[in-house]
Design a binder for these strands. Sequence first.
DNA 1: ACGATAGGCAAGCAGTCACTTGCCTATCAA
DNA 2: TTGATAGGCAAGTGACTGCTTGCCTATCGT
Lengths: 97, 97
Amino acid sequence: MAEDVFKALADPTRRRILDELVERDGQTLFEICTRLVTKHGLGLSRQAISQHLAVLEAAGLVVTRRQGRYKFHDVNTEPLERIVTRWLRPDPPEKTS
Amino acid sequence: MAEDVFKALADPTRRRILDELVERDGQTLFEICTRLVTKHGLGLSRQAISQHLAVLEAAGLVVTRRQGRYKFHDVNTEPLERIVTRWLRPDPPEKTS
DNA sequence: ACGATAGGCAAGCAGTCACTTGCCTATCAA
DNA sequence: TTGATAGGCAAGTGACTGCTTGCCTATCGT
């Protein structure tokens, strides 16, 4: 639901994670951790990122696929498209949700 | 700042207020209060709404104009248009992974 | 089998947030 | 001026949130 999407976007770290995944889709938890540290200078524990990813996944902004011991994370921009048309009267044609 | 916009949108009551103002622009604080109670069934004090409006105004989502003892609130959708283009590339909804 | 890697679960802590309460200022009408 | 209306300021409180810490499970390579 929309509530989860807005709450997921409320945190700057989660927005960074979305940035990272948009730039490079299908990363694992550890990849995201190291890239957030090296590129964005964020010093966060693995669990912190894991919890953020859980929030993003609950919002539908990130979908995951397991493969062996790896869990890959992909962005899903579909929830974003819906929430903004709430106040922005859209001119463009839509695929309705 | 984008931070303020996301934080402003994080609260369901503030989103309701935006709904109200989109539907009927230029309302005063008391008008918003009564309409939130009657139409949406929200039981909130005047100060609660006032504080929400302050957050929305700080985010640039609401602009105010004083006139005598009245203070009218108008929506400004411009900040909304910017924040979503952060992840929604205007061209492709899909990326050939 | 073993150790190493990738990830998950849960309790605890500190900071933030939404909301209330109480009091104050400013404008208008009589 | 007096009283009523429209709004603002500030402190206090309860709940939520982001993060850490510690321990646990599952998969891979050797």
